[in-house]
Amino acid sequence: MLKDHAKIIHAISVSGEVIGRKKLQKMIYIAKKMEFPFQERFQFHFYGPYSEELTLRVEELCNMGFLDEVKEKKGGYYQYRYTLTESGQEFLGENSVEMPCLGDCLIDINDQNARFLELVSTVLYFDNLPEAEVREKIQTVKKSQKYTDEEIDEAYAYIASLKTKSRQLLA
């Protein structure tokens, strides 16, 4: 049980800070699709792939004092910042996680904005379909986001670069 918690702590640790619950969900999902061993199950939800398990683990980690969650008012909504606490660092020191190169991948993903990560994770969620069908799905299930063909092209290029990077790093 705590092994999966340690992986989440490790992910936030190597990312430095994650701003936004949605972004954290997308980061873990994309890393999982890049074959990093995250166990959380994801289903398609309003903002793309979502894991209730991940939400519960993060909540537990905050309650245990391993993660710090800061709620900030941003305009008309709240945004959450996640960082590792000193207790979280100690826990990670006692429960080592073997995921070499995860940091390189997550730092890159964390540099992207949440809207783009929503698109990337949606493309990855439907990666068993031909590209034309994926594009059609995006225009249907993400209609309100109004993604352009250029943005979808960028998402595919970004996924290809992440796959190349993760293969090189994991080789």
Results as ranks from 00 to 15, higher is better:
residue 43 Q to N: 11
residue 6 A to C: 12
residue 90 E to C: 14
residue 156 Y to L: 02
residue 168 Q to E: 11
residue 49 P to Y: 01
residue 96 S to A: 12
residue 169 L to N: 10
residue 49 P to K: 09
residue 103 G to F: 14
residue 120 V to N: 01
residue 88 G to Y: 03
residue 78 Y to K: 03
residue 135 R to A: 00
residue 92 L to H: 13
residue 24 L to V: 14
residue 136 E to D: 09
residue 75 G to Q: 03
residue 9 I to N: 05
residue 109 I to A: 04
residue 17 E to F: 08
residue 58 V to G: 08
residue 80 Y to T: 00
residue 70 V to D: 04
residue 131 E to P: 09
residue 32 K to R: 10
residue 86 E to T: 14
residue 55 T to A: 08
residue 63 N to F: 13
residue 1 M to K: 11
residue 104 D to V: 15
residue 109 I to Q: 02
residue 58 V to A: 09
residue 155 A to V: 06
residue 54 L to S: 10
residue 39 Q to V: 04
residue 48 G to A: 04
residue 75 G to S: 08
residue 106 L to R: 11
residue 126 F to R: 06
residue 42 F to M: 01
residue 3 K to D: 02
residue 162 L to G: 01
residue 97 V to E: 01
residue 50 Y to S: 10
residue 147 Y to V: 10
residue 24 L to H: 15
residue 121 S to G: 12
residue 98 E to S: 15
residue 9 I to H: 06
residue 169 L to G: 06
residue 110 N to A: 08
residue 157 A to R: 14
residue 132 A to P: 09
residue 6 A to N: 11
residue 66 F to M: 13
residue 82 Y to T: 03
residue 121 S to P: 15
residue 135 R to V: 07
residue 25 Q to K: 13
residue 138 I to A: 01
residue 46 F to P: 05
residue 38 F to W: 04
residue 154 E to F: 15
residue 122 T to S: 15
residue 66 F to L: 12
residue 121 S to I: 03
residue 153 D to A: 07
residue 168 Q to T: 12
residue 35 E to M: 03
residue 138 I to N: 01
residue 76 G to C: 03
residue 47 Y to W: 13
residue 13 S to Q: 15
residue 127 D to Q: 08
residue 32 K to W: 11
residue 47 Y to M: 10
residue 165 K to M: 12
residue 13 S to L: 12
residue 105 C to V: 11
residue 51 S to D: 00
residue 87 S to L: 14
residue 154 E to D: 11
residue 8 I to Y: 05
residue 118 E to Y: 08
residue 138 I to D: 00
residue 135 R to H: 03
residue 155 A to T: 05
residue 46 F to M: 07
residue 27 M to V: 13
